[in-house]
């Protein structure tokens, strides 16, 4: 991102932070259908690219949506992922696991036409069964648009910090 962007202003900034807080609450409560319906736009691109470890002198371009990615989903594909969790036959989630999100460093920029570019940091704690604990840290680059008196995300790029995932899976939403 360039330094030239226009900050969204405090009222929008705090509205977006409140939006993120209720998003987190929905995801922590397992209200995935409500999350998808209310907070995700139907033209979403939900993307978690795979970044290799490359030497600084390597001049190859960064990954694009045509390259390998852990998530590279449109709305229908996100919906499949959500609906799987409601089938009652996802044995790993019975009894259910716990997830807790810490979202910080939210910076909102005005992109015009009621759209905003928002950067944030996310720490994810997952607990399951008796003793399993895993932690993930991610950078998040969103494009939000105003819908009614709230927002919906229509681009979400998730930059996961670890090259090797120290977890059974990354099956959680951010």
């Amino acid at each position: 991102m360039s330094g030239k962007q226009t900050l969204a202003g405090l009222d929008v900034q705090s509205a977006i932070e409140m939006h993120y807080r209720s998003e987190v609450r929905m995801l922590q409560n397992g209200q995935y259908r409500e999350w998808l319906a209310d907070m995700v736009a139907e033209d979403i691109h939900y993307w978690m690219p795979i970044y290799e470890q490359r030497l600084i002198r390597d001049r190859r371009p960064d990954p694009t949506p045509d390259d390998a990615a852990i998530y590279n989903d449109d709305y229908g594909e996100l919906k499949q992922r959500v609906e799987r969790l409601y089938t009652g036959t996802v044995w790993m989630e019975d009894p259910p696991s716990k997830i807790r999100y810490m979202v910080g460093n939210v910076e909102a920029f005005d992109a015009g036409d009621g759209e905003f570019e928002v950067y944030s940091n996310v720490v994810v704690y997952r607990n399951r069964r008796q003793l399993e604990v895993t932690v993930h840290t991610l950078g998040r680059e969103d494009k939000l648009r105003r819908v009614g008196d709230g927002f919906q995300v229509f681009r979400r790029k998730l930059l996961i910090d670890a090259r090797v995932t120290q977890d059974k899976n990354l099956y959680f939403f951010c």
């Binding site: 852990i70 590279n72 992922r81 059974k168 099956y171």
Partner: peptide, 21 residues
Amino acid sequence: IQREATRSFGTAGTLESDDGE
């Protein structure tokens, strides 16, 4: 093919995530 294979059997795979435990 890459997107579909990853969606089902990648680290966040809809099938592969069932197998970890």
